[in-house]
Design a protein around this nucleic acid. Structure first.
Lengths: 245, 245
DNA sequence: CGCGTGATTGAACGATTTCAAAAGATGTGG
DNA sequence: CCACATCTTTTGAAATCGTTCAATCACGCG
């Protein structure tokens, strides 16, 4: 069933009259938002759209970096492995996020589809040429990168200093904030990723992650509508738990 | 005694015939390395050199971001605080590293001198103008930022997955690698930062950090010449410890 | 209906923290 | 130059939090 996607489906830009960027749902939010309509047209010439099924890899740590990607729909994880198999998820990618940026031509992390995923894919040489041509694109990318750096440092605080319940509380608040920013209700958190993914993101085991869900529910901070749907019942309480245990 | 530096000493560029960039020891390595000699001259017009004594803050999380900095000599820490005082050190800055990059005009972390520190300081407006003027400067900065992002993700693996002894082993290898890259012997690690700094960087308490030093020494991986000078006796062993416990 | 997978719960264990004290280093003033 | 005060690092013992191992539960699907 997942095999239907084993070879990602490709939609060449020429197949769509106006090109893939015309109907793009994240054009304004992504790096592309730096470009004017006519410049977008040049962009549309060189991008490919690619789909991935859950658990499929977009690329893997150590692979030659052939492309740069922008998520157009779905959710993906960014992860790194230790030699013995321990895994750290460095972050989750949502529409308008990018991945595959690298200095030396080798990916330093792996990106894997969690839900059905649609990405916009630019060959490395082409996107580098594009950056040189449109400086505002490079400026925007620098802005996004410095933003990511700030997020990464927040995650270091979480991983290095917070207790298990603080970690899960912070995570749920972060997810709901992100959903809110994208126009969804902010008292709900949709969790397309597994408990294992969440644990690997928070530096916890599956079991501890699960126990903290139960504990947050018992404290009245959240309510579990399903495994993947969490209601933030008492946002204020959750905030306090996230910062002070 | 530290008061001598309470108001950082400033050297205006005009006071030096050739300007502050002429004798700069890190010009080639830092972002500035992207510029040609005549362009450096324009840069020299707008930079100030500033000195800080140990423990002095270059800037603090939440401050209005007035400047962008490049370290020219000494070592500094990049840290973030939780409301209750817990602290995470996100990284250490060495010569040629930069700090103070921000999207929205507010610093998202604090930078503090560990040793005597000398930095090159650019007013925010001026460095933004400079970026717009010299695209290769922006390209280089993007390169450095994406590099930092990769380092940040390595640190997440360390914080989220590694045990105490793996953390300290990885830390010592990282420090010695960095020293080697700067032309120093790679079998020695100089640690200008306190045990508390190291602990806050690795997500450990002072006591655990200290115990892991003792344990690495007992295992024959390192030898302590002093609190701040560590010899990496068995690099291979240290590598194994760092990755597999 | 029964199987398989992912999530939850329980109990014992172990790594790291916490609390407390000793040992070393650094600096000051007599 | 030594004695004393202060600060940092190290060490020890007890407590805690999160993990590990094992079993049960819940859901989706053939």
């Amino acid at each position: 069933m997942a095999n239907e996607y084993a070879r990602p489906a490709v939609t060449a830009s020429s197949e769509l009259g106006i090109g893939p960027c015309g109907p793009c749902p994240v054009r304004e939010l992504a790096v592309c938002g730096a470009l004017d309509p006519d410049e977008i047209y040049a962009l549309a010439e060189i991008v490919r759209e690619v789909n991935y099924a859950p658990h499929q890899a977009v690329f893997r740590e150590g692979d030659a970096a052939k492309s740069f990607f922008i998520i157009t729909s779905g959710v993906a994880s960014v992860s790194k492995l230790l030699p013995d198999g321990r895994r750290q998820i460095a972050g989750f990618l949502y529409p308008a996020d990018f991945c595959g940026l690298t200095l030396d031509g080798v990916y330093t992390n792996s990106v894997t589809a969690i839900t059905n995923l649609r990405v916009c894919c630019l060959a490395r040489g082409q996107y580098e040429a594009l950056l040189r041509r449109y400086q505002k694109l490079e400026a925007r990318l620098l802005g996004k990168a410095s933003d990511e750096l700030a997020v990464a440092q927040d995650q270091m605080v979480l991983l290095g200093q917070k207790t298990a319940i603080e970690k899960l509380g912070s995570f749920l608040l972060m997810i709901s904030k992100r959903a809110h920013r994208n126009g969804q209700p902010d008292n709900t958190a949709w969790l397309p990723m597994s408990r294992e993914d969440i644990g690997d993101y928070l530096g916890l085991t599956i079991e501890t992650t699960s126990r903290m869900f139960t504990q947050l529910e018992r404290l009245g901070a959240i309510s579990r509508l399903s495994d993947t749907k969490i209601e933030l019942v008492d946002r204020q309480l959750l905030r306090e738990i996230a910062d002070r245990g």
